[in-house]
Amino acid sequence: MPHERGRQALSLMLGPIFALAVAWAIRPLILPLWAFIERFWCASVAPAVTVIRMPYALPWGVSLPVPVPDLGASGPSRAAWMTSAVLVGVTLLLAVLLRRRHLPLSLALFTLAVVFVVGAAGFTPLLAPFPYVIPGYIQSMLLMGLTLMFMTPFMLMVIYYPLDFGLGKKVALTLLALTWLALILPCQFCLQAFVINGLGLIALPVLFLLFGLLLDIMGLVALYAWGMSWRLRHE
């Protein structure tokens, strides 16, 4: 039916429409919101810490002032190396002990230890110098977060919009997904900044790989699953 086809076409148009909306909202809405959230957390946790804007130049001459907490951290000291070695040993031991009864947890601990050890190689002559500090790292993660926000409507366009959900539900799921990212990203990376500030740069690689974008995407998968459990139009 023409009406049905029109409805379907409109559904599929939601992808580019929302992606463009995200692109448009980055400077006037998203980045100021992130700056507000980061300032809120900095004021609550460590009032002396300020939020600075690190500009990122896009190829077509537009600059994005990405807000990041002005925090620093040092490379691992001798004591940090010793502590890390002990912690890795304990983690591996726990992984072995839990292998029979709690295999997923055991494998998670093993993964954590391996990721930490490989990350720590970044501070050794093998891979040194370690190329990241807190503001630059947070800036790059938030930029990746913006890219993920831009991609999210396109992903939903492929795996959700073609299904026979009402238009309102498709819009609602998209807004939920974008809201999730808009709120979690500054909180997550502000927290990471404080953790790295406290534990030192050696904590950065683990946070990057295991507690970075994978967590955000896991949230998207959860929201998608929730959206998939909603009633179809004919149900």
Binding site: I52, M54, V68, D70, L71, G72, P129, P131, Y132, V133, I134, P135, G136, Y137, Q139, S140
Partner: peptide, 16 residues
């Protein structure tokens, strides 16, 4: 960390 050192960190960031 002050703004000047943030600038320095930028220079170090992602240098292959």
């Amino acid at each position: 960390m002050n703004n000047a050192s943030a600038g320095a960190s930028l220079a170090r960031h992602a240098v292959p």
